[in-house]
Structure formats: structure tokens, C-alpha cells
Write a protein that binds this DNA or RNA. Structure first.
Lengths: 120, 120
DNA sequence: GTAGGAGTTGACACCGGTGTCAGGTTCGAG
DNA sequence: CTCGAACCTGACACCGGTGTCAACTCCTAC
């Protein structure tokens, strides 16, 4: 599929898709005229990239771990280096703390919302 | 207490504390010489502010909702305007989605980490 | 063949919380 | 009184994913 369709199906802007490719997160074939052509599995990959971005990982780290991820099509996945494992373990801890914060903040928001809605 | 102690006790930089004040998130008394002086309850407030920042809220929105939060010392809390409630409800939905993403990403990280550790 | 929608590269800008430096003032222990 | 640590204001810079504009080329339905 072409970039417009991929953008639409993933909810990610065309601009961002090009950026992902520039950062080595996404690859594409090119048509004779130079247009990008993506396989079906690009959809899942882009969604996963988006999730990792949302989790606060940098494009650099995502680029490192992507080849180690079990892909949707079950391709051969590389084994992370000890260095990378350390890095990801730290990220995991950060994400854990972040989730805790988010749950707390959601509660706080609910309090404010409830206080206003309850006395409406 | 003074700003240095508050920074140390909350884990937030002095720079950030001044910024919070500039944004109307935090107030302080001033000594004769112009140094900031914080009450004990500032600690809780700063931590809560940090949590909300971590949740992706802007300082502007935090400033709006702060007076509506039930404070640790049970001070009188204002009631959020309908406009603000709408805003916070949207934020709540965003946070929900974010948590979902984070949990997914954590699983992905675990897979990569496990794959590497398991075959060590 | 041609119009116009979709694609290409490149460049500039933004956001907004935080780091950091400069140059000066205040605080408090000795 | 004095000295060093802590504090003050103001300013500049950064990060990094994304929006947007320009100028141009490709693709396809007619």
C-alpha cells in the first residue's frame, strides 16, 4: 500500500511515517517513480512504534529493540545485547512508575469531575 | 522551609519549583530578604503537580484544576466549571488510552528482555 | 494527453518543561 | 565581620516528534 493509506489506517500522519523511515524504524520498497510501497505488516509495525513512542521511548532506542521484537509474521528475531537489556530494564521501571503516576492522576481527575458533576 | 529543602524532599529541581510558581501552580511567602518560604504542605502539592505533569497535563490545565482539588489539609475546594469538566474528561480518556499503551509496551519490553535473559 | 490528487525532498518552526550560566544578594555559622 | 553556601532574577538553549510550506514529480481516471 502507499503512504497515504498507511497513514489513514494507522492514524499516524504522513509526515511522521517519513520521519520513522528516516530514523530507521520503518522500511519501504520504492516504485519506479520513487513512491513508497508498504507491505500489509507495516500497519502493525507502525502501531507498535506509536505505542512505544507513547511510552516515552526515543526513536533511537526503538530502533535498537525493533529487530529483537517477535514480529507479527514470526520472522527471525535477534537477541538483545546485555547493554540493551539493561537499557530496556531501566525503561521498564520507568514505565512502571509512570503507570502508577497515571493511575493516581486519573483518580485526582475523577475527584474533580465527580465533585462538579455530583452537585450539578 | 526554603526552596533547597523542598527540592530535595520532592526530588524536583530548584529550577522547576521556580517555574511552577511562575505558572501559578505554587505559592510562597517571602522572607525580608526575598527568599521563598514554603509551608509543610507544599511537599504534597509539588508531588501532585509532578504526577499531573507526568500524566501529560499542561501547566495551564493544572493551574485551572488545582483550586478544585481536595487538598491534603482539607481546605475549601472550588467547583470546576462545565468547561473545565469537559476538558478534564477528555484528559481522562487520553490517560486511559495512554495506560493501555503503556501496559502493551511493557509487555513488549518484557518479551525482548525475557528472550535475551532466557537464553543466557 | 491532461488535470489534479497524491507522492517526493528539504527546510523552518513549535512546544514547554528543564538545564545551565551570569551576575548579584541574603543568610547564618564561626 | 566575614566567608561560603544558598538564594535571587533573567536569559539562552535544548530536545525530538510533529505541523506546515515550497517547489517539484508521479500516478491514474477521464
Amino acid at each position: 500500500m502507499r503512504i497515504g493509506e498507511l497513514a489513514e489506517r494507522t492514524g499516524v500522519s504522513v509526515r511522521s511515517l517519513r520521519y520513522y523511515e528516516q530514523q530507521g524504524l520503518l522500511t519501504s520498497e520504492r516504485t519506479a517513480g520513487g513512491h513508497r510501497e508498504y507491505p500489509e505488516r507495516a500497519v502493525d509495525r507502525v502501531i507498535r512504534i506509536q505505542e512505544l513512542f507513547a511510552a516515552g521511548l526515543s526513536s533511537k532506542k526503538i530502533a535498537l529493540m525493533l529487530p529483537c521484537m517477535r514480529d507479527a509474521d514470526g520472522g527471525p528475531s535477534e537477541i538483545a545485547t546485555p547493554r540493551l537489556v539493561d537499557d530496556l530494564t531501566a525503561e521498564r521501571a520507568r514505565i512502571d512508575r509512570l503507570i502508577t503516576d497515571l493511575v493516581r492522576s486519573r483518580e485526582v481527575l475523577d475527584e474533580v469531575i465527580d465533585a462538579a458533576s455530583g452537585r450539578r
